[in-house]
Design a protein around this nucleic acid. Sequence first.
DNA 1: ACCCAGGCGATTG
DNA 2: CAATCGCATGGG
Length: 299
Amino acid sequence: MKIKGPLFDLNQSLCCGQTFRWQSSEDHWWYSVVNDRIVKVRQIEEELEFEIQPGLSAPKEFISNYFRFDDDLESIYQKIGKDDFLIKAISQARGLRVIRQDPWECMISFIVSQQNQIPKITRSIETMAQKFGTCTIFEGKNYYLFPTPEQLCTAKIKTLQSGFNLHGCALGYRARYVLGTAYLIYNNALEFRLDDLKKLPYNTAYRLLIDSFFGIGPKVADCVLLFALDKLEAFPLDTWTRRIIRKLYFNDERIKDEKIKEFCADYFGEFAGYAQEYLFCNRINICQSNPGKNMTKAL
DNA sequence: ACCCAGGCGATTG
DNA sequence: CAATCGCATGGG
């Protein structure tokens, strides 16, 4: 099936670190598990070709919902393209879209992402899926759904934590955060469902996430809000974007996160999350080195 | 042998 | 309140 879509760059959108379960194959096809379905996608020129199994009643809507085709990118570019830095960053990743993910999977993924590196995050999540998720077969290959809260609750903390020679989940100290979160969700111990947070204002949802879960702080909360709960004003502040904002707008001064986020909300406005994605995507160009490198003593 | 990673919670001053 | 520490594991 095909969609002649709006402005869109599949590779930029899949490779920018917002999602961790896509794998590229021969012929430029990408494969992933989206919720409980295997999805296969490739982009040729302006056309997005895809296949979804098992069969769906509204596959095109599924795809355009997942890739947020309703976001008017040109209009968003107008709003976040406030200066030459952003205009450059946008031009380098034109067509990158925020992807609308499942809140549960997104939350666990970004808990795993803390104080971690993208290749290792990817490997950890894949291993968790293989160990605890449901297996389905597509084109003769095994694919594993992201584990449900119930499935994750069966995990032993040591199994999640340990790496044993690259065969374990290797979550390290984050294992207890993941397990604790799974327990809370599975036992329905919260006053709200994750999806309910979509209906709340950004600030309320932000506080609820941080206050309800063990291991979710400002950064992870903002990732979940941006990538899964439709809060495009969320601006996840990680080591990279912190350094980028300080460098571009504060002359490398060591100002506090609270001030940075205040500035970003003000400066970029309702689509600050998109600004964050384009800046993060261009982090190497902007910083030209690791953020923390040799900075510990210098400050 | 270091030092760091898409941070967070606990502990100090 | 603000600033600093420890954390598990893997990679450079």
